[in-house]
Amino acid sequence: MGTQNPSAPPRAQARVAGDKHPNRRPGTVHRTGGLQHDNTRHTARFTVIGNHLAQHRELSLLAIGLGTHLQSLPKGAPADIKSLAARFPEGATRIAAALRELEAHGYLRRERVRTPSGRIVTRTVSCNQPAAARHRAEPRETRQPCRESAPPGPREKRPRKPLPAVPRPAYSGPGLLRAATDLLADLRRHDPRLLLSARDTAHLAPGVAAWLEREATPAAVRHALTADLPPEGPHRPAALLAHRLADRLPPVPPVRPRPDAPPPVRHPLRTCEGCDRAFRAPHPGRCRDCRSDLREAP
């Protein structure tokens, strides 16, 4: 007679499925779709990217991708707008906007430094942890534990630095100012970095009108404003254009006679009847001095 197993169940039990499983927390749903990962551990040529950048709530997808690319570049690699536009299919305008997003959230810093040769260049600094960089930049006595810090309030807007003064035309009419405004609005077609606001355009238009008044052609004005720009682009395009309009203002053109004006009349030489002096006049008579003496005589 065989021994019986007292712990064996009297019959086979049905498998517990779904939410009734004892090891499953209540309220959880087993998902069979969605993203799946097939990961292999990297051993060379990889970059560690924080989720605070990869899953940023306020950055655009282009800014997240560009920030990831910048963190993967080696030290000294070119990171200006022109180099990035040559590397990626996005244009310079979209790349410049993405760089401004990264700069606003602390993932990028652009600093102007002077080289040993005296040249001023722009250095781009990619920061993989903006919060840690801000913590290092704060004075030690002002640092507070994170749990006691209050949520940041709205940032105060700094007052806008006024633009440099521009020259003014001697006689400004609506047609001249309209031509100057159209020329400034068209600069972005020649260089996307020279996209001006309506306020900046209104400030710069009299300066362009002064150039046009001095017989400078629109092509000459456009070349003076767009030639030899910094490789990384102007930090304040309107301020740079205002400086060029005042610094490179052409001189006033010489006065030229009108093409339809009659030639000057050259009278023949006459001999004065009072002093025998030679003078030019249409008819014989006395010179200017003799005529004055006759008028002053009692």
Score class of each variant (00 low, 15 high):
residue 167 P to Q: 06
residue 211 W to G: 01
residue 194 L to H: 13
residue 182 D to A: 13
residue 212 L to D: 00
residue 192 P to Y: 07
residue 169 P to G: 03
residue 189 R to W: 14
residue 191 D to G: 12
residue 228 D to P: 00
residue 168 R to Q: 15
residue 227 A to T: 14
residue 226 T to E: 11
residue 195 L to K: 14
residue 239 A to L: 05
residue 191 D to T: 12
residue 191 D to R: 08
residue 224 A to F: 03
residue 212 L to M: 04
residue 196 L to A: 13
residue 238 A to W: 09
residue 174 P to R: 07
residue 208 V to G: 00
residue 199 R to T: 15
residue 232 E to T: 10
residue 181 T to Y: 01
residue 208 V to W: 00
residue 165 A to N: 09
residue 201 T to V: 13
residue 185 A to N: 14
residue 185 A to S: 14
residue 195 L to P: 08
residue 216 A to T: 00
residue 189 R to H: 15
residue 239 A to V: 09
residue 225 L to R: 05
residue 235 H to K: 13
residue 233 G to S: 03
residue 228 D to V: 05
residue 238 A to H: 08
residue 183 L to W: 01
residue 172 S to E: 14
residue 221 V to G: 03
residue 182 D to K: 10
residue 211 W to Q: 02
residue 227 A to G: 08
residue 197 S to W: 08
residue 222 R to T: 15
residue 229 L to A: 07
residue 180 A to D: 02
residue 177 L to P: 00
residue 190 H to R: 15
residue 200 D to I: 10
residue 160 R to H: 06
residue 218 P to K: 01
residue 197 S to I: 11
residue 162 P to G: 06
residue 231 P to N: 06
residue 218 P to H: 01
residue 190 H to Q: 15
residue 217 T to Q: 01
residue 231 P to H: 08
residue 208 V to A: 00
residue 225 L to T: 01
residue 234 P to E: 11
residue 202 A to Y: 07
residue 178 R to Y: 11
residue 182 D to C: 07
residue 188 R to V: 15
residue 162 P to M: 03
residue 160 R to A: 10
residue 172 S to M: 06
residue 236 R to P: 11
residue 188 R to A: 15
residue 226 T to Y: 07
residue 209 A to H: 02
residue 236 R to C: 14
residue 192 P to A: 13
residue 229 L to E: 06
residue 162 P to Y: 01
residue 203 H to F: 07
residue 169 P to H: 01
residue 180 A to S: 05
residue 184 L to W: 02
residue 192 P to G: 10
residue 162 P to D: 01
residue 183 L to P: 03
residue 192 P to Q: 13
residue 193 R to S: 13
residue 196 L to N: 14
residue 183 L to G: 06
residue 174 P to D: 07
residue 214 R to D: 01
residue 231 P to F: 07
residue 233 G to A: 03
residue 203 H to G: 04
residue 219 A to D: 12
residue 234 P to M: 10
residue 180 A to V: 08
residue 223 H to Y: 02
residue 175 G to Y: 13
residue 164 P to Q: 04
residue 180 A to P: 07
residue 213 E to D: 00
residue 226 T to A: 14
residue 170 A to T: 09
residue 216 A to P: 00
residue 233 G to V: 02
residue 236 R to G: 11
residue 212 L to Q: 01
residue 193 R to C: 08
residue 225 L to N: 05
residue 200 D to W: 11
residue 163 L to T: 07
residue 218 P to Q: 01
residue 200 D to N: 13
residue 230 P to C: 09
residue 200 D to K: 10
residue 186 D to S: 10
residue 223 H to C: 05
residue 181 T to K: 09
residue 194 L to T: 13
residue 184 L to N: 07
residue 234 P to F: 13
residue 190 H to N: 11
residue 175 G to L: 14
residue 215 E to H: 08
residue 174 P to N: 05
residue 203 H to I: 08
residue 182 D to M: 09
residue 165 A to L: 12
residue 191 D to V: 12
residue 239 A to S: 12
residue 199 R to F: 10
residue 164 P to H: 01
residue 223 H to G: 08
residue 180 A to C: 03
residue 164 P to R: 04
residue 185 A to K: 14
residue 192 P to W: 05
residue 206 P to L: 07
residue 204 L to K: 09
residue 205 A to E: 04
residue 220 A to W: 03
residue 200 D to R: 10
residue 217 T to R: 02
residue 165 A to R: 15
residue 191 D to A: 12
residue 164 P to W: 01
residue 198 A to E: 15
residue 221 V to I: 06
residue 236 R to K: 14
residue 171 Y to C: 11
residue 173 G to M: 08
residue 161 K to F: 02
